[in-house]
Amino acid sequence: MTERVRVKTMMPPGHVRTPAYLRGKVGVIERELGGFSNPEQLAYGLPAEERPLYRVRFTMEEVWGAAAETPTDTVDAEIFGHWLERL
């Protein structure tokens, strides 16, 4: 089961756990991690909703294009569901 997802490109100010270098990039879900409190609320001392968290795997080619050191190497990151668009 390889589910392809794209990381949203939005750039709101403030604390998010989605790295800028992965915005707009397409990866596959490596595993589902379950629900975790939304850090975007926790960071401001607000009551936090549970949001699903995923480990998403990206190829270096997808992330860095022609600048990739070795295109087939990968980078995995944990991304919350509300940052992902299913493809």
Binding site: G14, H15, R17, P39, L42, A43, Y44, G45
Partner: peptide, 12 residues
């Protein structure tokens, strides 16, 4: 009292 996310937010 606060969360690690609050720490990170203040650091950023």
């Amino acid at each position: 009292l606060f969360t690690v996310d609050g720490l990170r937010r203040a650091l950023e």
